[in-house]
């Protein structure tokens, strides 16, 4: 597939999305893929992120952060013109601990969108990609460029402060 301008634009937005999220950057997240079909984001194992030193298993909250970020990215990547997302709710099922020293990768798909809500499924695994570490289901609000706000980050802040989207916590992108 030849990347269209739209696809390139979305990919650029996605990279900015990660770079603009201090929490994602602090956890060392990296976008490995993004498009209308979904998002892939990974992060390295790190001793500081361990939940139980006896096993070396990464804390569940880190996996939550990875899947939450990935889910937000999947909403962003689904259509051109979506400029921000915020989590309404997220359910995470933990299947097993991620193995010590292994990179963790999350995949997310936005499988349905209404005018104001995006529904997302995500899963995460370590290097054994056949056996998920965790799966998540979430609902997200999102905002389109030019809807309640302009696309430019610098000018958007004040206008966005009062919108329904930003009543919610979670992730967003400039």
């Amino acid at each position: 597939m030849v990347p269209s301008d739209n696809a390139r634009h979305r990919a650029k937005l996605a990279r900015q999305f990660i770079e603009a999220i201090p929490h994602a950057a602090a956890l060392g997240m990296r976008i490995d893929g993004l498009g209308p079909e979904g998002a892939v984001i990974s992060m390295p194992w790190d001793a500081r992120f361990v939940g139980d030193p006896r096993s070396g298993v990464i804390h569940g909250g880190v996996v939550s952060a990875l899947m939450d970020t990935c889910a937000g990215a999947a909403v962003l990547g689904r259509e051109a013109g979506i400029v921000s997302t915020a989590t309404i709710d997220l359910r995470i099922d933990y299947m097993r601990g991620a193995a010590r020293g292994q990179r963790i990768t999350a995949h997310a798909t936005c499988y349905h969108m209404t005018r104001s809500v995006a529904f997302v499924r995500a899963w995460a695994s370590d290097e054994d990609s056949e056996n998920p570490v965790a799966v998540a289901t979430g609902a997200f609000t999102y905002e389109r460029a030019g809807a309640a706000t302009s696309e430019r980050a610098g000018t958007a802040t004040d206008e966005r402060a009062g919108t329904a989207t930003n009543e919610r916590a979670g992730t967003a992108t400039p």
């Binding site: 804390h59 909250g61 939550s64 979670g170």
Partner: peptide
Amino acid sequence: KQIGNPLLPALHGGAIAAFLEI
């Protein structure tokens, strides 16, 4: 480093999830 949206700014949903789980 807990921030998810620097424009608002707002805490990251993942940081909140981890806080509640801990």
